[in-house]
């Protein structure tokens, strides 16, 4: 038997016809994720999560735990649903009318899709950094101060100043901008803007930070800085990062989850996934056979 055929029979996948990309074949509905979806010390825990965009079934039966003070990377080819899944974790999908989410997602044991749950404090606890840096057209100070202001986290101007300084320091930006806090945030470079957005997210003291391809719009030097930052933040925050770069996933994360056409195919320790993937699809993606 050829390697392809033996591997195929092992994983119980049909052998693809020549010329047809293996990446386009959907998995069954009762597919079970390979690897340990659950961890001991989970900050967030997802059970049987499904997401529908109108008719389209975008995320299918995903179980996953997000470990505390860890970085988990979500990888997979374009359109596989990783960003969609990420947006479920802080209910940003609520802003999209045609999107429907089912299943249970728990933050510290409490289901965040509970009808009675208030989405405002949830988003203060689970922050998000977007793909393209989106600072407000306000001053750097006001960008950071916006979150604490609306939540009332600072009782006085002095406290607010402290929060701003603390957030910018944690984001590694303080030294660069401390003399120009009143200048517009949009005047910074791309990498600085993204770090500003990270500082803005930190300012409301979240427990979890979600990052949706945070470096894809940045140059390599800025990317390096942000990755360094992610590593530092790991001590105090739980981070889930979506990335289309496997190398980045390998660099920054401790766990990695591989998504494929809406299914969570495999999850495990980052080093394991990249050196010894257990599912054929994972291996094919990582070795570059598609995606």
């Amino acid at each position: 038997m050829t390697t392809a055929e033996s591997a195929a029979s092992e994983a119980e996948l049909p052998v693809p016809k020549a010329g047809v990309s293996i990446g386009s074949r959907p998995l069954d509905d009762d597919f079970k994720t390979v690897g340990n979806v659950r961890v001991n010390d989970a900050r967030m825990s997802c059970t049987d999560v499904n997401v529908f965009y109108g008719e389209k079934h975008a995320i299918k039966h995903v179980d996953l735990d997000i470990g505390k003070n860890q970085v988990i990377a979500m990888i997979g080819p374009s359109g596989c649903g990783k960003s969609t899944f990420l947006r479920c974790l802080n209910r940003m999908n609520d802003t999209i009318d045609v999107c429907r989410v089912s299943g249970a997602i728990a933050l510290d044991g409490q289901d965040i899709y509970d009808k009675k749950l208030d989405v405002v404090p949830l988003r203060a606890q689970v922050g998000m950094v977007f793909q393209k840096p989106n600072p407000f057209p306000k001053s750097i100070y006001d960008n950071i101060a916006y979150g604490p202001r609306i939540h009332g986290l600072a009782a006085s101007r002095v406290e607010l100043d402290e929060i701003v300084e603390r957030s910018l320091t944690k984001a590694g930006l303080w030294d660069e901008v401390k003399d120009r806090l009143d200048q517009p945030g949009t005047g910074l470079s791309g990498g600085q803007q993204q770090r500003l957005c990270i500082a803005r997210t930190i300012a409301v003291e979240p427990e979890v930070i979600l990052m949706d391809e945070p470096c894809s719009a940045l140059d390599p030097i800025a990317t390096a800085k942000v990755e360094e930052l992610i590593d530092e933040l790991r001590e105090n925050y739980t981070i889930a990062i979506v990335t289309h770069s496997m190398q980045q996933a390998a660099r920054v994360s401790q766990r990695t989850a591989y998504f494929h056409l809406g299914h969570l195919v495999e999850v495990g320790e980052t080093t394991e996934i990249f050196t010894n993937p257990r599912h054929k699809l994972t291996e094919d993606y990582i070795t570059g056979r598609f995606g």
Binding site: D118, P121, A124, H151, G152, L153, E205, E207, N236
Partner: peptide
């Protein structure tokens, strides 16, 4: 950090 966080959550909930 955790203490800060605890305080922050309470403040947020109070402001709601």
């Amino acid at each position: 950090a955790t203490q800060n966080r605890r305080r922050a959550i309470d403040v947020v909930n109070a402001s709601l």
